[in-house]
């Protein structure tokens, strides 16, 4: 097992991340637009100031030099300085916002799996019933509805009309930080971000359970007189859950990228607004830093999914 993990990291992971960083840097710097565009707002500006700024940022160098300099810093654990006027370390910018993004993503994963799995089971157990049709209908609505639209609906209903939840944001300055308060701020963004996963997980769970239910060994189980409850929850469910575990690995990237959009709707203090701002401003070190961090997280996510698969399914062995 350990050999497998090490092989995944060194033989597979590092070359993939290297290649990814190269192409990302290429795409990011090739895109039209320049990191010094904001200087356009300054009248009376001397062109020398623009050239000086470009030299300070290092963007007067050819692409390969820029990339190698960036790579040289990153292997030493330095993500560089942001290109904006404050020139703060990219690592600090990410660190300040990371906890909020992780919290939101975890909350939405818990919602997705916590609600999606039971709903999927119900849907499969009562296949072709009214309940099943209703669940299927809402699952498709949930998959199809754009998150920014769903977020605005939630804001309109719960914050504006019912006035029971805050309109996004986070604790006001001076507000006492309680667990209930934390949940009330987290509630709407997590639901918005989690909606797609709830619906997706429910559909997968239904399909996976239905597939298992028709297997021979379940017929055997029923034939020997086991209660239906035990048949489903003890024998069928365990096997049906396997594909759902892999799904977790696949869904992590989409949850993180979804978080970027949801955060900007709710002014959630995570990486979202930083990422969007960085792209608009061609802030290369910040774009690279955030993307590389996501790449590493996604990579780790897929390893975890593979390993948990091995734990759950005795037929799978990594040697």
């Amino acid at each position: 097992m350990w050999r497998y993990i090490l092989r995944r990291i060194f033989v597979q992971g590092i070359p993939v991340l290297l290649g990814f960083s190269f192409f990302l840097y290429l795409v990011v710097t090739l895109a039209p637009g320049s990191p010094v565009t904001h200087l356009r707002g300054v009248p009376n500006l001397d062109s020398a100031v623009i050239e000086q700024r470009k030299a300070q940022l290092g963007i007067d160098q050819p692409f390969l030099v820029q990339y190698l300099q960036w790579l040289g810093r990153i292997v030493r654990g330095d993500l560089g300085l942001s290109f904006d006027s404050a020139r703060r370390p990219v690592a600090d910018l990410i660190k300040e916002r990371m906890p909020a993004t992780i919290t939101l993503s975890l909350a939405s994963i818990i919602l997705g799996w916590g609600i999606g799995i039971p709903v999927g089971i119900l849907s499969a157990r009562y296949q072709y019933s009214i309940l099943d049709y209703l669940i299927t209908f809402f699952a498709f609505v949930g998959i199809s509805i754009p998150s920014f639209f769903f977020g605005l609906i939630l804001l309109y209903v719960f914050a504006l009309k019912l006035n029971v939840l805050p309109a996004g944001g986070f604790f006001l300055a001076g507000e006492v930080k309680t667990l209930a308060g934390y949940i009330s701020y987290l509630c709407l963004p997590a639901l918005t971000l989690g909606l797609g996963s709830i619906a997706g997980v429910a559909r997968y769970m239904r399909a996976s359970l239905l597939e298992v239910i028709n297997q021979d060994y379940l017929r055997t189980a029923r034939a020997k007189g086991l209660a239906e409850r035990i048949v489903i929850y003890k024998h069928a469910l365990r096997n049906a859950l396997l594909p759902i575990l892999t799904l977790l690995g696949f869904m992590i990237p989409s949850i993180f990228s979804g978080a970027v959009i949801v955060e900007s709707i709710f002014a959630w203090p995570g990486l979202g607004s930083l990422a969007i701002q960085a792209v608009n401003e061609r802030n290369y070190p910040v774009i690279m830093g955030i993307n590389m961090m996501f790449a590493v997280l996604i990579f780790l996510g897929s390893i975890i999914a593979d390993i948990s698969y091995a734990f759950a399914d005795p037929r799978i062995r990594y040697d």
């Binding site: 914050a159 944001g169 006001l172 709707i265 002014a267 203090p269």
Partner: peptide, 21 residues
């Protein structure tokens, strides 16, 4: 006593005003 610059989401501004935030 205190001045706070409070970050708000553009779309949610009317709600912030209504809730006296």
């Amino acid at each position: 006593d205190t001045l706070v610059y409070q970050k708000v989401a553009q779309d949610a501004i009317p709600i912030y005003l209504q809730q006296n935030r």
